[in-house]
Design a protein around this nucleic acid. Structure first.
Length: 469
RNA sequence: GGCGGCAUAGCCAAGUGGCCCAAGGCGACGGUUUGCAAAACCGUUAUUCGUGGGUUCGACUCCCACUGCCGCCUCCA
């Protein structure tokens, strides 16, 4: 059993070994809580959940830390742009703290609906201002910072290996720069560790610091909290692929400058969900300005089970862009419904004593451990369901696989409808009588009546059963 | 403009030198079943992997060119 993971740092897949034998220190960049998470954001969290489950299925314990970014960072680089949290607060007529709490809870609800296991530690940026200030002080003492008129900056020219994660050529970066560089920065890639509040107005969120009243820069929170909760060395740090060039690059810079040694061994990044092109030609990355903004709530309104979206994500590899389309989601929803029906059927023959089929499990786990190849793992699950074995064994195997898949097999229930079981049985009996009398018009009328109530009848060898339409 | 990635059946998507005349799912079609259905099950659905060259005994898999699409370089999962 060998787990291999693709490391952005080395650009290839390597056998994974944790620093400490049986404990994996995992840090995943969490949400900025000023709006609902869209399904593109959520794809990354599904990938991280799979990672966690595969680590556990590989016999490793995991300590998982996720941050909540509740400090109002700016909508664009440097001094331009507005505070995202303040924007949200103004939009909804609430305080920034209410906004933060509301959207954090909304995020947790989304996680629950997608069967994402919660982290062991949730940490909010605003609860860790002293830790962030302490980290900036350390950097200052070591000579990595400078104070400009609008904040304290990290001097990237002091690090010889700045940008190693993104493998960016700093000169090329300068040449291609589309953004005007903040006047106060010495080098284009320099980034703020602490920003001062504007002199003419009070910010909704600000704190005193040795350098003046203000708020922490965006990158510093993750480093400060990761060190606090996971120690000076981290096994795996994850996030979306967009974090490679800026956020994670800067996290590495500040953390390694402060610690004086390599900080994270494995960087894993999830690719984007992109919108399939529509007739108007619109498509690409999901964002508020273009390409639509779909949330779990949107999917539920349209009648999809959130887990159908999880299944949809599992059908593609996490390092591959996944094109979202309603047709694609429909296909996943059908597949998921089929799986559910199969599981409920197999469960009838399950006593709780059956063991998972060893060969099938091995094939499944091998796929999971090959850099989380869930499409292959899922394929092996479908193949397993066709192997000659007792329903109980198949169900036991499916349950074991679901430890990783997280499709909620054990919790699946026949869906309830408006009518009681006894009432439905009366309809069935009446139709049965009509059928016996060869009065098929009457039998079909009863069936039609039930369809109108959302119930479908199916005549099988064991009699007539019903299910929700 | 610079950097990176991708292109596999109607759709989604694995595979990345011989096990591939290419996994799995969805859809479609045919069959079993049914009073008719539905569901389920069985079968069929790419001799071929964007196009053109090259390397090799052998390429979907490596190299080059071309075409198309996407992402990053700016807050961003």
């Amino acid at each position: 059993m060998a787990l291999s993971l693709y490391n952005t740092l080395t650009r290839h897949s390597d056998p994974f070994t944790p620093i400490e034998d049986a404990l994996v220190r995992l840090y995943t960049c969490g949400p900025t809580v000023y709006n609902f998470a869209h399904i593109g954001n959520l794809r990354t969290y599904v990938f991280e959940d799979i990672l966690k489950r595969v680590l556990r299925a590989s016999g490793l314990a995991v300590r998982h830390v996720m941050n909540v970014t509740d400090v109002g960072h700016l909508t664009s680089d440097a001094d331009a742009g507005e505070d995202k949290m303040a924007l949200g607060a103004a939009r909804e007529g609430k305080s920034v703290w209410e906004i933060a709490d509301f959207y954090w809870q909304a995020f947790r609800a989304d996680m629950q609906r997608l069967n994402l296991q919660e982290p062991d530690v949730w940490c909010k940026a605003t609860d860790h201002i002293p830790e962030q200030i302490a980290l900036i002080r350390t950097l200052e003492e070591k000579g990595f910072t400078y104070v400009a008129d609008d904040g304290v900056y990290f001097d990237t020219s002091k690090l010889s290996d700045y940008g190693k994660l993104a493998r960016q050529d700093l000169k090329a970066l300068k040449a291609g720069a589309r953004v005007e560089m903040s006047q106060s920065k010495r080098n284009p890639p320099d980034f703020a560790l602490w920003k001062f509040s504007p002199k003419d107005k009070q910010r909704l969120m600000e704190w005193p610091s040795p350098w003046g009243v203000g708020f922490p820069g965006w990158h510093i929170e993750c480093s400060a909290m990761a060190v606090k909760y996971l120690g000076e060395r981290v096994d795996i740090h994850c996030g979306g692929i967009d974090h490679i060039p800026v956020h994670h690059t800067n996290e590495i810079a500040q953390a390694e400058a402060a610690l004086g040694h390599q900080w994270v061994n494995w960087w894993l990044h999830g690719e984007f969900l992109v919108m399939a092109k529509d007739e108007s030609g619109a498509g690409g990355k999901m964002s508020k300005s273009s390409g639509g903004f779909l949330t779990i709530a949107t999917l539920v309104e349209k009648g999809y089970d959130p887990l159908a979206y999880r299944y949809f994500c599992l059908n593609a590899h996490y390092r591959q862009q996944l094109a979202f389309s309603w047709e694609g989601l429909d296909a996943a929803a059908h597949a998921f419904a089929h799986l559910k029906k199969t599981a409920l059927e197999l469960r009838k023959g399950y006593t709780g004593r059956e063991k998972p089929l060893a060969a099938a499990m091995e094939e499944f786990l091998t796929a999971c451990q090959d850099d989380l190849n869930m499409p292959r793992a899922l394929a092996s699950a479908w193949t397993m369901l066709r192997t000659p074995a007792s329903p109980g064994e198949l169900y036991a195997t499916l349950l074991a696989m679901d430890e990783v898949l997280g499709l909620g097999i054990a919790a699946m229930q026949e869906e309830s409808v408006g009518l009681s079981e006894a009432e439905i049985q009366q309809y069935i009996a009446a139709r049965q009588a009509a059928r016996k009398a060869k009065d098929f018009d009457q039998a079909d009328a009863i069936r039609k009546e039930l369809v109108a109530k959302g119930i479908v009848l199916e005549d099988g060898p064991a009699g007539t059963i019903w299910r929700k339409a």
